[in-house]
Design a protein around this nucleic acid. Sequence first.
RNA 1: GGGGUGGUAGUUCAACUGGUUAGAGCACCGGCCUGUCACGCCGGAAGUUGCGAGUUCGAUCCUCGUCCAUCCCGCCA
Length: 592
Amino acid sequence: MDKIIKRTHTCGELSLDDLEKNVSLNGWISKRRDLGGLIFFDLRDRYGITQIVFDEKKNDYSFNIAKKLSFEDVIGISGIVIARPKEAINDTLATGQIDIEVNDIVVYNESEPPPFDINNRNSASEEHRLKYRYLELRTKELQHSMLLRHQSCLEIRKFLSNLDFIEIETPILMKSTPEGARDFLVPSRIHSGKFYALPQSPQTYKQLLMVSGFDKYFQIVKCFRDEDFRADRQPEFTQIDIEMSFVEQDDIIELGTNLTRKIWKQIVNVELPEAFPKLTYKESMEKYGTDKPDIRFDMQLLEFDQYIFDSSFDTFKNILSSKGRVKAIKCPNASMYSRKIIDELTDWLKTYYNAKGLAWMKCSDNILDGGISKFFDNSLKSKIINDLSISNDEIIFIIGDSQDIVLSALGALRLKLADRENLIDKTQWAPLWVVDFPLVEWNKDHKRWDALHHPFTSPNLEDLELVDSNPGLARSLGYDIVMNGYELGGGSIRIHDSKLQAKIFNLLGVDDQEANEKFGFLMNAFKYGAPPHGGMAFGLDRIIMLLTGSAQIRDVIAFPKTTSAMSLMDDSPSFVDQEQLNELGLKIKEKK
RNA sequence: GGGGUGGUAGUUCAACUGGUUAGAGCACCGGCCUGUCACGCCGGAAGUUGCGAGUUCGAUCCUCGUCCAUCCCGCCA
């Protein structure tokens, strides 16, 4: 164990140019082929694979050591670069023209049989791979993800630094605030009974930095939200956090566009358009049923209210008279949609999106047929076909319900149908901005207005009167950037006036005392020369996920958690000693 | 909080309608093999069918509970 063979090359670089050279390599045994008197190893490091060969007749010292070695042993070797016989050249390998004929070898660490095949990530379930994450990180997929993540961060830092942004670290232990997601709490030992929270985002700090005069700030920073998780959501995740002073919404949108273009150009060599399309929140909801539309394909939601009044379909008439909505979506290959398949779609919409049903009509021979077509007379059906440009062998699905349900159910159906019909060009990138978000939304459970973005978001100054008269209609200066149906990031122009901020708190039902307790420090800061400012934050993990072509955020985080927020590798969270609890003045309640 | 799917050898999977000794590939162990690259050939070992109850003459299979994973709804300013 005392000897180390220092590598002269990595496992990905030797070629015929290096013939006859005496070289040394370090790496892991990735494959082993034992032919008796001749043994081949594929030696792997993060740069590549080089085949090394042990010949009993030429060097029986290293041969005898190699005889005992197997998968994932770590070794160092020295030897001569030799050309492979013509018939043994491997074109699939960058180093496939050569071998290293080994004459010295050191075994640094023998491996137990690995719990799964590092060469084949699918040789084990995800659960199993997460338990041995440090081994999964040896796979070429995860090595690639980590490298790409690193390169992306470099490009981001370079891009922003060149524009005079500076990266400033903000606290990880901060004040718990009532708004937004559930906080992860950290008990204070020194102040028994008090808690810090881990930041859901450095929102308040970056606004304070604007007051401090750092007019262009950014930070690549961990954020924490104690909610339930999904394929694209983890309890801790990384944001590219940005804030600027003396700017308007369009300045941030331009910056966000350019940053996104830079990343895509540098990392995957894709030229995104100079300006991304902009949709208002309202347009997005009406056309796509979501505020993060995938616009790689069209298939927009169609207005259908206007045909209901002249029909004899009372169910939908009743929905309209109780302020509901009726919208439709048009889908090709009607003949593929049997009763059984439509029933399955209906059940799915009922289960997940609270739809009460899924109506439909098929177009054949220029007439609408089947489903609810009997409630529409012939001239009305012709009008529908003409208005909505329905072609033969298309089916329209129709949902009538409250507006929320119609939009979310049809939005989900749109994605489902696109998938079924293969309408999405997977090689395409479709970025866009969604703007003019509502300032607040009505919270039915608590009977109050909640901020849609966060309470520091400025109302659109044109809508200031609405804030008093009809808050639900007031637009904010909030915006999201969306790529291929994923929310990549979002931000807003902030309130920098303590009077306006007080007014918004008032609207949100946060009284003066509470506002002062929770956000007094920010309100105070705004009394001392707060510049107009705004910013945004990108979800770094989601960006990397898209760039690597993965649908799982876990694939781009070195040590991710499961959907129940556990780490299978180190088995956290875990219980702690009674003594630790005592120090913190905590007592665990029995769960009933 | 709710719903779907899954949990069988180290691992990936199979096992009909509930029925004899729960099988196969890879890995592992032993043997043979000098141009392999999914090396090949011969032989071997390997199981608390996630856990706990129940139904049954009999449960991997049916029922209930529970744990874990995953996907989705709610949630995620």
